[in-house]
Design a protein around this nucleic acid. Structure first.
Length: 408
RNA sequence: GGGAGCGUUCCCGAGUGGCCAAAGGGGGCAGACUGUAAAUCUGUUGUCGACGACUUCGGUGGUUCGAAUCCACCCGCUCCCA
């Protein structure tokens, strides 16, 4: 099976400009394509990860990837699919984020001579002169068409600033620039980028009279249609400091039944034949598939060792036993004890398991807290500091959150 | 530039002088049920030395015994006209 067919079989492709053309080029390993990443935070997320896997799949088939870091476009902020304007980031933040992105990508994609390339659109966008730009490309954009673009739909009611309206032009300019200077004739990206991407092909056609292509990948959504890769509004990060390998593993270990196979197909590199065997699994047997999914992804992002540790820790915690070493841990200092004791509520807050004492109180009163496997009966419960020496104590919040506290 | 509106807690959205820490929904968290799933049901969801106190309704001042609610100015946004 060739790459393009595989992408289709994995359910990755959402929209394409010219299927035959793209299939031919990609299968022949002759495409030079780019994917843009706006650096709005200091770590990549699970969503970016999917784009990176796409890059890798195509690279393995001989195509040449360009990872574009959006140091310039981030200065504008993509309004696609958003209901409000993004927070404006400073130049320093953006540069910092770009550096973080770069580091994470290098772990995953091979860059260098004859391999993948990394570029930053700050290098050309920030140099642009307003009037020159307007004359050069402004004439090629129809405001009427732009306003009809799907990506602005949500903003037509709530308001769209001129700053954000220009995002499409910047992204289009990127493609135009890469087409001319890097021989890049394809752009890939998330399906929410479709209109922005078409802006680029349109610009290239008008300015240069040449064809360029776009391909978008299906966004990963759950059964409710919500974007996956977020927990309670927070992203699942690739940076182990922001989302620990254990939490990362747990996120995928906990996907809904209905989504496991889809996730395995779209995100892992397991051969399709092997995945199809899992398709017949049902009920609790799907838990095995979830473990495979979680392990595979953790392995790719954090390495085999971390993946094994996360898997073992999860098994120990949920199956009894007790490998305490891989749990998130908080070190307590003597100052946090009074008369050699610490109250449950203070303990929970100190470990970050509750945001406030009020929340800690509720948690205990609702029977959601156990310490060393014993349910904490009331909010006045105190623990002596001797308990925290050596291995420390294991605090369990709810059913799935484990935390260890030790004396520093 | 002229006119009409709007800004409430994590989000949406009620509230238009005291009964308001503020209805309802969503989301979150916890409990029951389970397979670390989904669905369902229940409780809970500003902070704290907690039958009380403190902080919050775009911002700053003001009126009042008392303001999310009234007034002034400011900031932001939407719509109509130019």
């Amino acid at each position: 099976m060739q790459v393009y067919e595989e992408l289709v079989a994995r359910g990755l492709i959402a929209q394409v400009t010219d299927e035959d053309e793209i299939r031919e080029m990609v299968n022949a390993g002759k495409a030079t394509f780019y994917i843009g990443f706006d650096c709005t935070a200091d770590s990549l997320t699970a969503g970016h990860f999917m784009a990176l896997t796409l890059m890798k799949r195509l690279q393995m088939a001989g195509n040449k990837p360009i990872a574009l870091i959006g140091g310039g476009t981030t200065m504008i902020g993509d309004p696609s699919g958003r209901t409000d304007m993004r927070k404006m980031l400073t130049r320093e933040d953006i540069d910092h984020n770009a550096a973080c992105f770069k580091r994470q990508m290098e772990r995953f994609i091979e860059f260098g001579e004859g391999k993948a390339q990394m570029v930053n659109n700050a290098d050309w966008l920030l140099e642009l002169n307003y009037v020159d730009l307007l004359r050069e490309v402004g004439a090629c954009f129809s405001v009427n068409n732009m306003l009809r673009a799907e990506c602005y739909k949500q903003r037509m009611e709530k308001g769209l600033s001129f700053l954000e309206f220009n995002y499409m032009i910047m992204q289009s300019y990127d493609f135009y620039h890469l087409f001319q200077h890097y021989d890049c004739n394809m752009q890939f990206g998330g399906n929410d980028q479709w209109s922005n991407m078409l802006g680029g092909t349109e610009l290239i056609r008008r300015k240069l009279g040449k064809d360029a292509h776009c391909l978008t990948i299906q966004l990963l959504t759950d059964s409710q249609g919500n974007k996956m890769g977020k927990t309670a509004g927070n992203a699942v990060w690739l940076d182990p400091e922001k989302t620990s390998p254990y939490d990362f593993y747990q996120y995928w270990r906990n996907v809904e039944d209905s989504e496991v196979l889809k996730c395995i197909r779209m995100l892992t590199f397991l051969p399709l034949e092997q995945i199809e065997e899992m398709a017949s699994w049902e009920g609790s047997q799907l838990n095995q598939a979830k473990e495979i999914l979680a392990w595979e992804l953790t392995n790719m992002v954090h390495g085999r060792e971390e993946a094994d540790k996360a898997r073992d820790a999860a098994k120990a915690l949920f199956g009894g036993g007790g490998d305490k070493s891989e749990m998130p841990t908080t070190e307590l200092t003597a100052g946090q004890f009074t008369d050699g004791q610490i109250g449950v509520m203070d303990l929970l807050v100190a470990c970050g398991l509750a945001a406030s004492k009020g929340e800690a109180r509720r948690l205990v009163q609702q029977g959601g807290v156990s310490v060393n496997d014993e349910k904490v009966p009331d909010i006045d419960k105190k623990f002596a500091c001797e308990l925290f020496t050596g291995e420390g104590v294991i605090i369990k919040k709810g059913k799935k959150v484990f935390h260890r506290a030790v004396m520093a």
